[in-house]
Amino acid sequence: MTMTLNRVSVPVIVDEGKCIADKGCTVCVDVCPLDLLAIDLLKGKAYMKYDECWYCLPCETDCPTQAIRVDIPYLLR
């Protein structure tokens, strides 16, 4: 179908220097209640794939390397 590209600033920010998805970690992807995160297989890093965040924080809290920061979505900030 016809696609458009609307840029948004996403609330879940991954520090790629700290993220250890390339070592097989998928904790943030597993715990997200809305299933919004994914691993970029080329980079081996987690990222926010869908902009549907509830800013509930399990991804940030459970990340073993503190690589995630969750901002309040801009519309609500």
């Binding site: 597993d30 715990v31 997200c32 209640p33 509930c56 399990p58 809290t61 459970d62």
Partner: peptide
């Protein structure tokens, strides 16, 4: 629908 470890109204 999510993962039982962190799902539902009391995920946190």
């Amino acid at each position: 629908k999510a993962h039982v470890k962190r799902s539902g109204a009391i995920s946190m």
